[in-house]
Design a protein around this nucleic acid. Sequence first.
RNA 1: GGCGCGUUGGCCGAGGAAUUAGGCAAAGGUCUGCAAAACCUUUUACACGGGUGUGAAUCCCGUACGCGCCUCCA
Length: 475
Amino acid sequence: MKLHNTLTRKIEEFKPLQDKIVTLYSCGPTVYDYMHIGNLRKFVFDDTLRRALEANGYKTKHAMNITDVGHLVSDSDEGEDKLEKGAKREGKTVWDVAKHYTDSFKKDVAALNILKPNVSGGPDNYAKATDFIPEQIEMIKILLEKGFAYETPKAIYFDVSKLKNYGELTGQKLSDKEVAVRSDVVTDKNKRNPQDFALWFFTVDRFAHHDMHWSSPWGEGFPGWHLECSAIIHTLLGDPIDIHTGGVDNIGTHHVNEMAQTEAAFGHKLANYWVHCEHLLVNDQKMSKSLGNFYTLVDVIKKDYDPLALRLLFLQSHYRSQMNFSWESLDGAAEFLKKLRAWADLKFQSNLGHKKGAGDSYKEALEHIQSAVNEDLNTAQALAILAGQASLAEQEGANPDKLQPLLERLDELFGLNLSSRDDITDPAKRIIGQREQMRRDKNWSEADRLRDELAEQGIAVEDTEHGPVWSRTDA
RNA sequence: GGCGCGUUGGCCGAGGAAUUAGGCAAAGGUCUGCAAAACCUUUUACACGGGUGUGAAUCCCGUACGCGCCUCCA
């Protein structure tokens, strides 16, 4: 299997540290607001990667965090904590805010058929940052002891000048980076280097009234954003891990700092492969909360789209390409999904008879699909092959005995739930039979009436040379 | 200033050299009891300029435009 590694900016053959086991970590959500579908594209990507690994026979150990503390926002000159900001906005406690948006996130990923992490770090296997405070404090201790960190009245910082290859992931020299590009960045005069980042904030000054705080050997406070991932990985998976994923916007700062912390504290690298997902755009601009040009999964559902249509849309592009979202493109994916489902439902219609040889191409198609996925997750190409099979079935029919096993394999890869669909009811089948009789009797008006009746139940009937073929229009 | 990515038809998007995938949409035709599906056409697709090659959407250089990141973002 091949993957693009941000560390080398090349597509590399994937080799895990241990035979047949892959340790995988995905940066999770910051639960201060609803996820938008751009966020969700990244989680579909994580899921696709994991499914691909498992389809290749690897056992995965997959962990994901939930950031419920410490992630600073700064849309005023005061860098607030995102959670605190959300709480103020909604008149709730930070803990309530975290819970509300965590629940919402879980609902979203469930609707998109995204697998939960399989290494337990807490409820539903997600690892909340606030559940790993001691582990984070432990890392700070080590970093202070080893001289990679220092204390100021406001915070404990990581000294980036102490780590030789700091920023390796960006391919950019420290001296070339503009400091505080965004005008709203708050800087601490006591920092040794502008790029030094906080490991621990003291609840003083602007954070004096911070609701979430813990005691530490150095004083009351709360952890910096980057630390949680390093600590959670160290605790749940053990570093180095095989693969670390995230969005491209994490490359420059978050992941650079995660790497730095782990390397400095434990003396070895954090991950062998770094895989990053590109952004979803709207009108050629990044979908983001700050621009306000985003849609949530609830928006999608309200417009009567199946969440899996969105999943299919994401799979039709490559994860390293920016994708320009539009409702028109989602329409396209929804139609495509309908077509795939109609194909899957042929497994219930064994009475049809299919041409000899129908289904013989499945094995080869599956191999092609698998190898496309193995080329750095080229799901777009894989789906093109799949579409070819669906089209073929429209001509030669499908072999139900061979179709179901294929659908199961496809679901493992794509998570589109094609193999678990329900048959139509017996009464509906009887109506189809009756209508066929009416057609033979040339009683067209009655036949049409029965067709309308079926349509009301969400069933469309097509008359083929083999007999009537039904498909669902509602699901 | 630095770093990264992109520019393919009506829309979304694959594609590291010899046929521009696939999905969606629209129009016409064939077929059909009527439909639907299928099939056949059509809807002027590879930003621009150089280079290397028998051959370039694909590799190299440059230009233009766009997007992203450089302590908010997936």
